[in-house]
């Protein structure tokens, strides 16, 4: 899983521009699915197995980024966030555009150094000295750039949210020998700007049960907000987050499968944030939906950290879910 995740994390894919990630996943899952297609909003849908229930698994391909909103006379680029970008720590970060152009994020002189400055105070400097030298255009998007590194079993990279989820889905496909169900592995688009790809792909697939795979926060860092999820303690099975309450039946089934198979898990109550699960759950007349989360520190920073064992546990849990009967 590590090599796959390294490639995924280092790929470029802000919301609405997931093409490079999609191509990469397509090649990684070559031969693993019965059919593969791309829908109108760019979701990659790989179907494997037949019979049983129609199950949808979803992990989003997109990552947060920035979009150029203005190019000034001196060649500096002003930008808006794409998804939940925090201003804290933006100064000095590097960003990469689709064509590989690297920019440094600068910050205007501050009147008050103790207050977090507004997004409008930051700009991207690509080294141009005037507007004419800028080959980029208003509307072009960039992502944070940082190599994937490992410290033993702790993996650090940008875009763990949610390439970790994508890697878990790919790993599940690799390990899944005999699914008892018709499983649609959906690599969704535009989650970070409002769960948009999941909304339309769920409608199209009309699943009977769904599980979203995404990252979640932890409460195991100094003075963290109280939360009973820790890195390395296993797959997190979601109870609720800021946008949804997991279907009780699906949640309980995931817990049951984890316990039966000795897979490490922890129950997750997340205060803010949500996942594709929220959108899938209310598709059409409603879809029983759960979420399996990879515990992740420093979410939406360029140094998101996960534990290898947690990601492995997530994949193991999905495999046993799909290789057994599902009754809710």
């Amino acid at each position: 899983m590590k090599d796959t995740l390294r490639k995924l994390c280092e790929a470029y894919g802000p919301s609405g521009n997931e093409g490079q990630v999609r191509d990469l996943i397509r090649s990684e899952i070559e031969g693993l699915a019965d059919s593969v297609r791309v829908d109108a909003l760019g979701n990659l849908i790989a179907v494997k197995g037949s019979g049983g229930h129609r199950v949808m698994l979803a992990a989003h391909m997109d990552e947060i980024g920035v979009i150029i909103t203005h190019i000034d006379e001196n060649g500096f680029l002003r930008f808006a966030p794409v998804g939940g970008v925090w201003t804290l720590g933006l100064s000095g970060r590097r960003v990469a555009f689709a064509d590989g152009t690297i920019g440094a994020i600068g910050l205007e002189k501050l009147d008050d150094r103790d207050r977090v400055p507004a997004m409008a105070k930051f700009y991207i400097d690509i080294g141009a000295s005037k507007k004419d030298e800028v080959h980029l255009k208003v509307g072009d998007m960039a992502v944070m750039t940082r190599p994937f590194v490992t410290n033993g079993g702790r993996w650090i990279g940008k875009a763990m949210d949610n390439r970790a989820g994508c890697a878990v889905l790919i790993e599940t496909m690799r390990r899944l020998k005999a699914p008892k169900h018709e499983v649609a592995f959906v690599f969704t688009t535009q989650e970070e700007v409002g769960l948009r790809g999941a909304t339309t792909s769920a409608f199209g697939l009309d699943p009977e049960i769904a599980v979203a795979v995404d990252v979640t926060g932890t409460g195991d860092t100094p003075k963290a907000a109280p939360m009973a999820v820790s890195l390395g303690e296993g797959a997190a099975i979601k109870v609720r987050d800021g946008g949804m309450l997991a279907h009780l039946g699906v949640k309980d089934l995931l817990v049951q499968r984890a316990e039966e198979n000795g897979i490490a898990y922890q129950l997750e109550v997340l205060e803010g944030g949500t996942t594709d699960g929220r959108a899938i759950q209310t598709s059409r007349a409603g879809v029983p939906t759960g979420v399996v989360s990879v515990p992740t520190r420093y979410i939406h920073s360029p140094s998101e950290m996960i534990d290898e064992r947690d990601a492995e546990a997530c994949a193991s849990l999905l495999v046993v879910l799909l290789e057994n009967d599902i009754t809710l």
């Binding site: 109108a40 339309t200 199209g204």
Partner: peptide, 9 residues
């Protein structure tokens, strides 16, 4: 509009 049904570009 773009979020209706299976997605409308």
């Amino acid at each position: 509009i773009h979020l209706q049904r299976e997605g409308i570009p």
